[in-house]
């Protein structure tokens, strides 16, 4: 065996131990295996100086050395790289219990959430959405709704007046009249919006949100109201929710009903939320009074309808367990951030 080959072999064996990084491994490879300058490469070039009869052996020896060196150095390279990867990971060791960095997503107001939910349910049943004005005339808010000037029902609501004729609407029912004046039946509308009453305590706010629904078509009856309410409460409060109608009074509907649904907290057994009754009052409704239809030029001999009005704040407060209505209008971020539904 050529002593030179042997020497290089020894050099590689001892040199490999000195290699401490993948960069050194790369240099080490270059030192021996570079085609032009590497020591093994140079041995190949020596071939011409080797006597011809030894050339075969020499060549074989060099090739064997080269194969061997490639193996050693590759192994060395892999070893260094995996060592370095590990070191890099270790250097990047972090405290995973440190607080998260969030990209903040805001959310819609709970009133908007409930409103959207209701709109989704009713839009699917064919209801259009109508926005009426918040400033209304006495006529649209009261008179056309069968509540003339000296009607006792006016005492039910404390009205904010802007002038003898104009007022802040006390009910979204005012929108009914605008719709019926401008559209012939079949009518299915939902009229959500802000309404105003001079009332101010933990459960009453001078401004709140109602959603009025109105259906006018041929042959509409109280049974249709019951059927629609059943679908509605099941969708919003769950499949097992039941409804109960009980007599009430609104000037613009006759018969008028108050609608209760079985308590979604206790399922009707009686709890704090439903004050032990098993029922929760959710909305007022009724068959549209013929006088209202007549006021809007709709013939009550041909058409009939039903209407209902839902208080959105009440629904939101029940759903999210909010105890003071004021919290809904203060934009306290500590409140708003919790209501991410």
């Amino acid at each position: 065996m050529n002593a030179a080959l042997e020497q290089i072999k020894q050099e590689i064996i001892s040199g490999a131990e000195e290699v401490k990084s993948s960069k050194e491994a790369y240099e080490f490879r270059k030192k021996f295996l570079d085609g032009k300058t590497g020591k093994i490469g140079l041995l190949m070039r020596e071939m011409k100086n080797i006597p011809p009869e030894q050339r075969a052996d020499y060549g074989k020896g060099v090739n064997e050395l080269k194969e061997w060196a490639m193996g050693i150095i590759s192994e060395l390279d892999i070893k260094m790289k995996s060592k370095e990867l590990l070191e890099r990971y270790e250097a990047e060791k972090i405290d995973i219990s440190l607080p998260a960095e969030k990209s903040e997503q805001g959310n819609l107001h709970p009133i908007t959430l409930i409103r959207n939910q209701l709109i989704d349910i009713f839009a699917g049943m064919g209801f259009e959405i109508f926005d009426g004005p918040e400033i209304e005339t006495d006529y649209y808010n009261f008179t056309a709704l069968n509540t003339p000037q000296d009607h006792p029902a006016r005492d039910m609501q404390d009205t904010f007046y802007l002038s003898p004729e104009f007022l802040l609407r006390t009910q979204t029912s005012a929108g009914q009249i605008h719709v019926m004046e401008n559209k012939k039946p079949p009518i299915k509308i939902l009229s959500p919006g802000k309404v105003f009453r001079s009332d101010d305590d933990a459960t009453h706010s001078p401004m709140f949100t109602q959603m009025e629904g109105l259906v006018v078509d041929k042959g509409i009856t109280l049974c249709d109201l019951q059927g629609m309410l059943d679908v509605f409460v099941k969708k919003i409060y769950g499949e097992n929710t039941k409804t109960r109608l009980r007599p009430s009074y609104f000037p613009f509907t006759e018969p008028s009903v108050e609608v209760d649904c079985s308590c979604f907290e206790c399922g009707g057994k009686g709890c704090k939320l439903c004050k032990g009754t098993g029922w929760i009052e959710i909305l007022g409704a009724g068959v549209v009074n013929d006088k209202v239809l007549e006021n809007c030029g709709v013939d009550p001999n041909e058409y009939s309808g039903f209407a209902f009005g839902i208080g959105i704040e009440r629904t939101a407060m029940l759903k999210y367990g909010i105890n003071n209505i004021k919290l809904l209008f203060e934009s306290d971020l500590r409140v708003l951030k919790q209501l991410n539904d």
Binding site: I129, D217, G219, I220, L222, C223, D224, Q226, G227, M228
Partner: peptide, 24 residues
């Protein structure tokens, strides 16, 4: 109906009404 009882009202779903297209 208030004396007969509202429990006699049978849920229906506007069987005679015309189709309307709803939405925002």
């Amino acid at each position: 109906i208030r004396m007969y009882g509202y429990e006699h009202v049978v849920p229906a779903f506007m069987p005679s009404a015309q189709v309307t297209i709803g939405g925002l």
